[in-house]
């Protein structure tokens, strides 16, 4: 067992973990944060995307021990403390950027990362930025629209 200490969604969490424990299993099974799903076994689908120190990673492809001392943000830590949704979450709802919703936590987290690096992306940049996230339902069109809408909203809010 290895002791890890991680800030998860604003809270200090720690515990003893087996080195082979995947981050996504620590989040879901030890911390009960089941908002982050597992969609594949091949690191391809991106459903499990979370932020580590602000950058997107696939939590099924990271060991819990690899994030010792770091800060993890999951879909459950994105809203404001008063419950107000993040602009990307709102835009996914408004633009019908989801159908079954399985890919959505990962899509939203990857979009947040994308917009933090590129606040004003073109459609092509949005599509490239989300290339690691697969959606079986929407055909991506409304997801791209949601990210563009969130970008405009966030720009308006900061200016």
């Amino acid at each position: 067992m290895t002791h890890i200490s991680v800030t998860v969604d604003g809270l200090h969490r720690h515990g003893d973990v087996e080195p082979r424990l995947l981050l996504v299993h620590w989040l879901r099974e030890d911390l009960g944060l089941v908002g982050t799903p597992v969609g594949c076994d091949t690191s391809n689908c991106g459903a499990c995307t979370v932020l580590v120190d602000g950058r997107s990673v696939k939590s099924c492809s990271v060991l819990a021990v690899q994030v010792d001392g770091k800060t993890v943000t999951t879909i459950q830590g994105l809203a404001e403390e008063d419950g107000e949704w993040h602009p990307v979450q709102k835009a996914f709802k408004e633009c019908h950027g989801l159908q079954c919703g399985f890919c959505t936590p990962g899509m939203v987290m990857a979009s947040v990362d994308l917009l933090s690096e590129n606040p004003d992306p073109t459609e092509e940049e949005i599509r490239n930025g989300l290339e690691g996230n697969l959606c079986r339902c929407t055909g991506y069109h409304n997801i791209v629209k949601a990210v563009a809408t969130a970008a405009a909203e966030m720009k308006g809010a900061s200016s």
Binding site: G46, T49, V52, S56, V57, K58, A110, E131, G132, N133
Partner: peptide
Amino acid sequence: VADPAIRHL
């Protein structure tokens, strides 16, 4: 190479 999340690690 790959996608942004994989490139981050």
